[in-house]
Amino acid sequence: MRTKTFAAAALLAAASLTLTACGSGDDSNKPVAVVSEEAGTEKAATVLDKPFEKPDLVLTDTQGKKYDLRKETAGKPTLIYFGYTHCPDVCPLTMNNIAVAAKQLPKAEQDDLRVVFVTTDPERDTPAELGKWLKGIDSRFTGLTGDFATVQAGARTLGISIDPPRKDKNGKVVSEHGTQVIAFSPKTDGGYVLYGEDATVEDYSKDLPKILKGETP
């Protein structure tokens, strides 16, 4: 008797699964949506037990002026991302997500926040190129370029590994971007929160007010 009940239940489960699958076979959004529901309970932010020290980076900004990261962002809530402008997908998505979230903040807080984009492809990303690109996202963001080895060393202190741009067999430049945004506290200047590529506008909108106060999101 018990065996039969189990068998029937299994059949029913199988039948309902197939049914669902038939429906979603034509709509590729559905399986993704299911996964994101589960993942939705996870936080986008990873809070570090041991914060990163702000990298000692002295580079060139989009005006062509010397920019000392530690000096310029001391005591300011700061987000840092390593990427390049010839990147169609993740780099603009990441920066646009932050831009949209930042625009939802009160004006004074918007002015307080520092968002720094450091290029991993300095040869192509001149100050002018960087400036043009960032203007298409948020003109208040800081763009930094300079010697690749300096950028690479700075990224490494934040646990971000970036190889120099190289040419593929067709002669096209292949660059790398970092996979994380690091948030630095205005209280300690330590890099205490990480965001991966999955972080959305909503994640940043929810967390930025806390990061502005150096609180744990």
Binding site: T18, A21, V34, V35, S36
Partner: peptide
């Protein structure tokens, strides 16, 4: 983590669709 899960879920969905609709 989300990244890792997604392909698996898609593969499962694909396999189920096959069983159901093939």
């Amino acid at each position: 983590m989300r990244r890792r899960l997604a392909p698996t879920a898609l593969v499962i969905a694909g396999a189920l669709a096959l069983a159901g609709c093939g």
